[in-house]
Nucleic acid binder design. Structure first.
Length: 202
DNA sequence: GCTTTGATAGACT
DNA sequence: GTCTATCAAAGCA
């Protein structure tokens, strides 16, 4: 049962848990994702509309959108939702199920369970670069394979490192997976929190 | 032009 | 638990 990427991002995101992503010789089972609802979502890169950097977000569902974070990391998103909505699912973490040798060589000294723990690590394990942004799943060796069966259970919570709309529980993960990254509030949110109180409450 | 800011990760106390 | 390297874009003047 393939995931219909044209559905709402909040439907697509949890449906991608357990799915496989294959690129650059490594296959990853997705264990953690976050939903970003395009121009409706203050935390999304697409919120302020089309920009040169975010152009691939506005391409058809099934497009890969990669961006550079904090100077050194490459994070990957799957564009989804209605065409042109700018919605995407951030791939935060996964478990390497094939191509372990490649992933290990790209992240020397890292235990297998942590090869793709966190969006920056995931990009590194998959050897993603900004040149991969704009590629389409299903073409040129970039594949998105649906989960063999729907996830037994999923959990949701606030998105990591997001300083706005922090109350939207749009992070989804598979409970009990060692490859799921720990929650970290945005540095900016932490400042705000210290003054206004806990934004996770309520 | 110049300043601010991250959808981070790893090192450190 | 806290601190920060690092750099491309965005935002502003």
């Amino acid at each position: 049962m393939a995931v219909d990427l044209t559905l709402d991002v909040l439907t697509v995101a949890p449906a991608l848990l357990g799915a496989h992503v294959r690129v650059h010789g490594v296959t990853l089972l997705l264990t953690e994702v976050e939903a970003y609802a395009g121009t409706d979502d203050p935390a999304a890169h697409a919120y302020r509309g089309w920009r040169p950097r975010t152009r691939h977000l506005f391409e058809p569902p099934g497009t890969l959108y990669c961006y550079r974070s904090y100077g050194i990391h490459i994070c990957a998103n799957v564009v989804c939702g209605p065409a042109g909505s700018g919605s995407a699912v951030l791939l935060r973490a996964g478990r390497v199920v094939d191509g372990l040798e490649f992933a290990r060589s790209r992240r020397p000294g890292v235990p297998d369970a942590r090869l793709a723990r966190g969006p920056g690590c995931l990009g590194q394990a998959l050897a993603l670069t900004l040149d991969d942004s704009g590629r389409r799943f299903g073409q040129g060796g970039l594949e998105l394979l649906p989960a063999a069966e729907p996830a037994v259970a999923t959990v949701s919570g606030p998105r990591v490192g997001v300083s706005v709309a922090a109350r939207r529980p749009w992070r989804f993960w598979l409970p009990g997976e060692p490859s799921v990254s720990a929650y970290r509030a945005s540095p900016r949110l932490r400042e705000i929190t210290s003054v206004l109180g806990d934004p996770h409450a309520g």
